[in-house]
Design a protein around this nucleic acid. Sequence first.
DNA 1: TTAAATATCGTGTACGTTAACGAATATACC
DNA 2: GGTATATTCGTTAACGTACACGATATTTAA
Lengths: 355, 355
Amino acid sequence: MVNGNLGIKDIAKLAAVSIGTVDRVLNNRSGVAPATREKVLDIIKQTGYKKNLVASRLKLAKNKVIKVAVLAPTPRNEHSYWNLPLQGVNRAIQELSAMGVSSAYFYFNQLNHQHFREQIDKIFQEEFHALITVPFFESESNMLLRKAKEKNIPVVFLDTERELLYSSNFIRQNALNAGLVAGRLLHGLVGDEGTYVVVNILNDRGKQINNLQRESGFRSYFKHLPNKTHIKHFTINHPLEDDFDLSPELKTLAKGPTKFGIFVTNSRSFLLPSIIKENNISNYHLIGFDLNKKNIAYLKSGEIDFLINQKPQYQGYTAIKGLYKFLTEGDNSQLNIDIPVEIVVKENVEYYCAR
Amino acid sequence: MVNGNLGIKDIAKLAAVSIGTVDRVLNNRSGVAPATREKVLDIIKQTGYKKNLVASRLKLAKNKVIKVAVLAPTPRNEHSYWNLPLQGVNRAIQELSAMGVSSAYFYFNQLNHQHFREQIDKIFQEEFHALITVPFFESESNMLLRKAKEKNIPVVFLDTERELLYSSNFIRQNALNAGLVAGRLLHGLVGDEGTYVVVNILNDRGKQINNLQRESGFRSYFKHLPNKTHIKHFTINHPLEDDFDLSPELKTLAKGPTKFGIFVTNSRSFLLPSIIKENNISNYHLIGFDLNKKNIAYLKSGEIDFLINQKPQYQGYTAIKGLYKFLTEGDNSQLNIDIPVEIVVKENVEYYCAR
DNA sequence: TTAAATATCGTGTACGTTAACGAATATACC
DNA sequence: GGTATATTCGTTAACGTACACGATATTTAA
């Protein structure tokens, strides 16, 4: 055996049984006398035997393929955010294809609850061993979880959009924490005497829980500062379709000498620079989320100061890897991951947009 | 075959030869007629056959164990920096132990060239398949590279301390880029009207190339600013053992209202806060490198603003993974890695110090 | 032309684990 | 006690690749 480790054969010899019996004990199948089982388990404990996952998977690959279903919103275009986790999923699937892991993709219309349900039904008709999806619709997601629990299928949710009834596995960034980080970064640039604006740019489905939590984290940072006297806070909730305009009060402030600190709670910070110019604001700092093309361009031109990365590709990648570990080793420690709040500036953006 | 992929057996059938012949072609061994070889290669190209590394390793595990030698400075204590890459190495080795990868550790005295040589000799006496080390001593590192090239053993260097004669593989952070990032972060906090101090805290072996490059990157950031008029720059080269003191000019400035921006080019930024207090400087910002205990404590207390992480554990981890990929697949793309310049603040430090 | 040498290629076994199959023993029932 | 049924356990053939060995076919030398 490699590394001086023992194999199932050695265990069998030590326990004076056949490899078949050892295998039955290891995979706790029936057909072993209690005394024999004890004896084998003893040897296993004593020797610290660990099964060779490579050999195990080699044998199982043909019979027990691991099929993972991935259910994501239909991407609007090739630059859509939801393509990114799928890229990570693909990379992980490629790495594990030799181990018999495969995936199937399902898409749902972002505005259509019914369509989501249909896709769920489709998935549960086929035989999958795990499911990766996004908590878009609250009641539907809970329904999904209930069904999955019945069938004993592990579910991993990427990102945070909803709070869910049933406890489940999440791979996501702590939105409150991200808000705190944004608070620190923006306060460092703007200082105590500035005007702070939180911009929630709402999408079709209204304000989401992570927008709320990011804002709350941001505000909480300022609450805990020693001298918070001169800080003015505004919140703009801006539906995506509407024309974007500053409030009269902000317009007045914009004419003064005040420094602006603008925090966009989602990936649409690229909408701000043009509006800022229209209002003749020059002394401002801007922070947003996600490394999409437009955001990166503004980051490079200096019109966005910081971006916070949620590592969407990594989310998909680590979801597959975590599920594999769970399904083969029973180790669920990689199914709940707090994605680091990654700070991106012009000078280090290259490292992060590559993948 | 898994995933509809073909196996060596299918290739053999398609090419109307035996699997032995296909194997000879794949591992380009001798004993195949040119025409047959062509035929098989054709089929391989057409089908896009990729060998199953799992099965391959399973077979090879007993015969061809991959042994990696790791040569690092003797850690001064359990919190020593050089323990961190070794932790990453260990993690990777554990993951790959089933694939027959093992490691052996060698340590050298940081001040003793001769000792380094002795360890190198020891390593080359045994049969290793790869070597991971640190470019501490220039001439000795080059000697090592020469020997390794003779024996055809891949070498990976972690971190940058020296420029080396022979080209080799490096897993390290771009020090110039890190300096640029530090420049942006500090300038954001201090602004155009500040006094900037670069502090090089030298260790036993004098100033190292990454200290120089970090400083040069930092300065270069300010050179490219539109309005660079009021920025004052100082550099303090401080041998670790000496008492640390500010220059007369800096002491005078310290009495005035100027904002200080202090950039420590290595992991010893934790030495600064006490000195700053002694000189009654209150209006300052401080940035340094590495997530050691003392730095983290000051980051949490607010006396350090930013830390730049070099991900030492990841360096060790990715070195092993990269070597494995090279030795098994011949893919050397993971042997030269530019470690991201990771920005750490109080609010996201938890994500990074866990591992 | 024939034996020897070489080139080319197929066969078979092994890696460690799994699981079907069947053999051996133990238990139940009439 | 004898047959039927359960329980327990050993044997063996895969999974896909690697490589030693031996079997042909081809070339070389005499």
